[in-house]
Structure formats: structure tokens, C-alpha cells
């Protein structure tokens, strides 16, 4: 367990980044990358995949007091590899297989298999997420209004 008041270590920051990438990944894409990677580590469930909800909070006026906005579906699980490394997942949606793969990747990222997982799964997911964000930003930018003022009555 980590002390919540301690400054986040680089290890924790890195783990947060890959857990987040896995949690947000499209389920079909994660499954495809996982099976292409050919990884099938033995594991035991500490908590089998379970679908549930997370209450989303907003803030009054965007910056004020929090309020409950509504929930989103999420699936969580925890498992242990044969070597003893534990993996956790809390992922968006109701995909139990997505949660299982995410927890396996989380565990493997702290074993010798880390470079394989990064190259075969995390790097493609990161590139695709970046491409989706860039595509949205490019479409938004094309709808940005460029005001110009017509100057009237001046004989410049």
C-alpha cells in the first residue's frame, strides 16, 4: 500500500499511464492486440471480473462545490500471475474480457515481459488514442469561426 500523502513516484506515474490507456481502450481492439501478442500467462483470480458503476461528479459552475452528475459503467478485477505479481484493472464499460486483459497487462508490465507488452499493446493503443484526439481536434479547428470586420465609409 502507498502512503496517499507521499509525492507520486515515477513508478506510480508510469503505472497510472498504462492502466489509463488500457481502461480507455476500445474492447475489440485490446482483444485483437492481446491475441496477436501471443501472451497467455497463467493466473489466479483475486477478484474475478465484476461489472458495476462509478458515480461521476461535476462541480457547480465548473469550479465550485461537487455534485453527483450520474454514473458510468465500469468493470474491475484483480489477479495474480504464477510468479506472484498482482495486476489490477478498473476499465470503462461492461467488458469482462477487457478487464481481464487489462489486469494481465498491468501485472506483466511489472515483470520481464514489460517490453513485449509495451511494444505489442501499449504503444499501438497510445498511438491510436493520439490519432483519435488529433482527428477530433482537426475537425473542430475546421469549424472555428474566423471573424473579420468589414470597414465601411473609409477611403483608405
Amino acid at each position: 500500500m502507498n502512503d496517499p500523502d507521499a509525492p507520486p513516484s515515477p513508478e506510480i506515474e508510469a503505472r497510472k499511464a498504462w492502466m489509463s490507456l488500457l481502461a480507455k481502450a476500445p474492447e475489440a481492439r485490446l482483444e485483437a492486440l492481446w491475441s496477436a501478442a501471443g501472451l497467455a500467462p497463467e493466473h489466479a483470480w483475486l477478484r474475478p471480473p465484476e461489472a458495476g458503476a462509478v458515480m461521476l461528479r461535476g462541480r457547480a459552475g465548473a469550479v465550485g462545490a461537487p455534485f453527483n452528475l450520474g454514473e458510468m459503467t465500469a468493470t474491475r478485477c484483480a489477479l495474480r500471475l504464477a510468479c506472484g505479481t498482482v495486476g489490477h484493472a478498473m476499465v470503462q464499460g461492461r467488458g469482462k474480457e477487457k478487464a481481464r486483459i487489462a489486469a494481465l497487462c498491468d501485472a506483466l508490465m511489472r515483470t520481464e515481459a514489460a517490453p513485449t507488452v509495451r511494444a505489442a499493446i501499449l504503444d499501438p493503443l497510445a498511438q491510436e488514442a493520439e490519432a483519435r484526439a488529433a482527428a477530433r481536434a482537426a475537425r473542430a479547428a475546421a469549424t472555428r469561426v474566423e471573424f473579420f470586420t468589414m470597414v465601411r465609409g473609409e477611403n483608405a
Partner: peptide, 8 residues
């Protein structure tokens, strides 16, 4: 884990 992760 005692830390927050972006889950979606």
C-alpha cells in the same frame, strides 16, 4: 492501490 487512475 491507493491512487487515482483515469478509467474512461
Amino acid at each position: 492501490l491507493g491512487f487515482a487512475v483515469e478509467i474512461g
